[in-house]
Design a binder for these strands. Structure first.
Lengths: 336, 336
DNA sequence: TAATAAATTGAGAGCGCTCTCAAAACCTCA
DNA sequence: TGAGGTTTTGAGAGCGCTCTCAATTTATTA
């Protein structure tokens, strides 16, 4: 049976209120008293009851991480473990805990209500939502603090994102610089902002070259390996000489399609992709790709959220993390 | 500002106690009263405050999922996303929520205390712990209900596991049946029970063949791709003709090592592995492997835990899920 | 040293819920 | 109709904490 504040109080000869002050780092405690109480706490290994604190103070030091499971790549794309790890680790460091919601079809009904109204969450991080995901609007309408991972196209919200458009632009430009003229792209799902932004970056690079986009050189994927495979097979008949692929995972599928077709990478087809997932350097050939700080993304989201929770200040936070082109063999250039 | 039981009570003209009964499915409520109250709840979209409930009733409908981050394969092995998904989904279905703890080095200090004493968790699921992980003993000593994913070698605890030894045995036997004599193995980390059990299965198959194990045909990995690569390079000089590899992820590394060495699979080296991860059918060649129900593992753990939480009955639950040999190309047999 | 200000502490209410216990309402049957 | 039983409801305590406010102790100054 866990001990209570009252127990600590009587053990250290002070009142419950004083113990509470010590635990919450209230400066108005005489150093000697603080010491005395801390000693008992340490010795007893005391941990205040979160529920009681939540009820009394209205804060829990728990945040929610919501990932819509509609994201089909959830199980295979290493982005998510990295993100989760980043969030979890940042929370640990700041004495917060994480509740995880892999939201399912039943979504809005129960899940949403729990997230919004159960009162257990100080704030919410939403990742990889679809454009117009109902939860974003719901959070927006409620007064609950929240941060998106991935920018939102029109709502005035807090978010953290990587510079998807610039990354895609740089990868595509890299392919142009290597002399390619027919640069195709395999996009992510266009109902997600990251998918759209990476396509925008591709377009920007085309525009810079004064090249008009060809619809047949653009194939939409959904971030999965299988969709990359399919998209590449769809592109091959149109004979691009290079492809910018919106994720490494899809690039793996594309490589598989090319291998089956007997095409060599980079000689017959140059490839640049996006993510720099852990084994991007171990595919054959290793992928030229855009490195994005997935883990930091999670950490920044947590930091931002906690900041908002602790002082619900006025202006919205927007953080865009920079990305970096990593040149390996799949593009056919050992250096820029 | 979220509404309270009291609000619902006055809106539906009954007392707080009656609303509480309705919410908790207490049979002692007149059907007409129940209806009346339910209607208000539905309309208001009421969600009881978890913290208050926790405080009053001592239950929260929240469970903890603990994964020691020491597990180096955490970020790349699709096993974890699947497991997490299984747990999350089962929780959703049973009206529970999940708190995630990717335990870090600081482990025992803060994290452990929070898990055990914060009072917010009805129970805990621990996955992939090392043998003699301190958290298991701590949970065992505390009275908190918990379930391990992965059996425990000596403690009398609740667990859910797959039949690692039998799976490994079958995979290895399959290689013997195909006529191989020199069957090596790449093991998982031997400080984890799954690593040990799969090695045991390998040994059992050797014994059945009347073959004594050769230390130089056994290489230890740590479940990562890189360790599979390294282990295969270590094994090659000893000229096995087939290898049982304890995870698909390590098999990918092994395939990479073989490819680099110019060896063909399965002609020059047959391979069978374990996990049947989502892209096991898309490696080249596709992997003959043991399919384990990772997602169900999580779901069973949740079910077991909730059962224990709800009636802290006497006997320990042990569930061992069966596994299945999936024959693809890497072993050199299209059928058994 | 007394008077005042500042620092420190404790008493007690209250957060929103559950649960016990007793009261009220409703049945049944003589 | 009324005694006795059963079903349904409500009053109220209390879960462990925070936080306000007043009381007490300590420091400072005239």
């Amino acid at each position: 049976m866990p001990l209570t504040l009252e127990d600590i109080a009587s053990l250290s000869g002070v009142s419950r209120a004083t113990v509470s002050r010590v635990i919450n780092d209230d400066p108005n405690v005489k150093p000697r008293t603080r010491e005395k109480v801390m000693e008992v706490i340490k010795q007893i290994n005391f941990q205040p009851n979160i529920a009681a604190r939540s009820l009394a103070a209205g804060r829990t030091n728990i945040i929610g991480l919501v990932i819509p499971a509609g994201v089909s790549a959830l199980f295979t794309d290493p982005y998510f473990p990295l993100l989760i790890q980043g969030v979890s680790s940042a929370c640990n460091a700041r004495d917060f805990s994480v509740m995880l919601w892999l939201a399912e079809p039943e979504y809005e009904r129960r899940t949403m209500r729990q997230i919004l109204h159960s009162g257990i969450l100080d704030g919410v991080i939403v990742s990889s939502m679809l454009l117009d995901d109902p939860i974003v609007q719901a959070l927006y309408d409620s007064k609950k603090p929240f941060v998106l991972i991935g920018r939102h196209p029109y709502l005035d919200v807090n978010y953290v994102d990587v510079d998807n458009a610039t990354g895609a632009y740089e990868a595509t430009r890299h392919l142009f610089r290597l002399g390619h003229q027919q640069v195709a792209t395999i996009t992510g799902p266009l109902n997600m902002i990251a998918g759209q932004d990476r396509l925008d970056g591709y377009h920007r690079a085309l525009q810079e070259q004064g090249i008009a986009p060809h619809p047949e050189l653009i194939a939409e994927g959904d971030f999965t390996e299988a969709s990359g495979y399919k998209a590449m097979r769809q592109l091959m008949p149109h004979r691009p000489t290079a492809v910018f692929i919106a994720t490494d995972m899809m690039a793996e599928g594309a490589l598989r399609a090319l291998r089956e077709a007997g095409m060599r990478v980079p000689q017959d087809m140059a490839i640049a992709s996006y993510d720099d997932m852990p084994n991007a350097s171990r595919t054959s050939p290793p992928l030229t790709t855009i490195r994005q700080p997935s883990q930091q993304l999670g950490a920044h989201a947590v930091d931002t959220l906690i900041e908002i929770v602790q002082k619900p200040g006025a202006h919205k936070r927007r953080i865009i993390l920079p990305v970096e082109l990593i040149v390996r063999q799949s593009c056919g250039a050992s250096c820029l």
